[in-house]
């Protein structure tokens, strides 16, 4: 799926396509397994040099069986995004410059994996990203700086400070989060009913 056109900082996603590389590091969650399967199908040489890290999506989709059947040199299922990122940090310690990076699935997982790769010096333009599945958002409250995962409604209540936040399309690659801004700052208590925007 693709998202409607928005402001410049709103991430856009492509379709994973095989590129030459000494190693292929593939990180996916939920329905992202389908994008990984398509990638393997279009790049016959990928499997033998692939390391796949996978975790179920925020909507509960667990396509681990798809990943396990791809014949990747290494494939690991993590119980959650934080445990996947913990494993990723270890993988990056030994990774070489000629590692192609592919991310697929929900925006929260893609964004956090991209953030960790960028922190290692990988230019964000060269990290391939394909969105599949859930559209729930990872949002940072601009007031208390707390991040709330899997936001489904707009506005929503910050899980840290309790403010009611309007979810913007304004996105930070460094934080891997959309921006949430207090919706009743000018008229405290005037909070529109939450609308289910992300699923």
């Amino acid at each position: 799926m693709s998202f409607p056109p928005s402001i410049k900082s709103r991430p856009v996603y492509g379709v994973l396509s095989p590129r030459p590389g000494q190693a292929h590091l593939i990180i996916a969650d939920g329905e992202g397994a389908g994008a990984v399967a398509d990638l393997f199908a279009s790049g016959p040489g990928i499997a033998e040099r692939a390391h796949v890290l996978y975790t179920p999506g925020p909507n509960g989709t667990d396509d681990w069986a798809v990943i396990a059947g791809l014949g990747a040199a290494q494939a690991q299922r993590a119980a959650s995004v934080p445990t996947l990122l913990f494993r990723l940090a270890r993988v990056l310690l030994d990774a070489k410059a000629g590692t192609q990076c592919y991310l697929a699935g929900s925006e929260g997982l893609i964004g956090q994996a991209e953030r960790d790769l960028m922190a290692q010096g990988v230019p964000h333009q060269d990290i391939q990203k394909e969105h599949r599945g859930s559209t729930v958002r990872r949002v940072q409250c601009v007031h208390c700086k707390g991040v709330t995962e899997n936001v489904r409604t707009d506005p929503f209540q910050c899980s840290h400070c309790g403010l009611h936040l309007f979810v913007r399309d304004h996105y930070s690659r460094r934080l891997a989060a959309f921006q949430g801004v207090c919706i009743d700052a000018e008229e405290p208590g005037n909070i529109p009913p939450p609308v289910e925007k992300f699923a």
Binding site: R19, P20, G21, D126
Partner: peptide, 10 residues
Amino acid sequence: AAELGLPEHS
């Protein structure tokens, strides 16, 4: 560099 898969922008 391209053959080895180094990121283009690096």
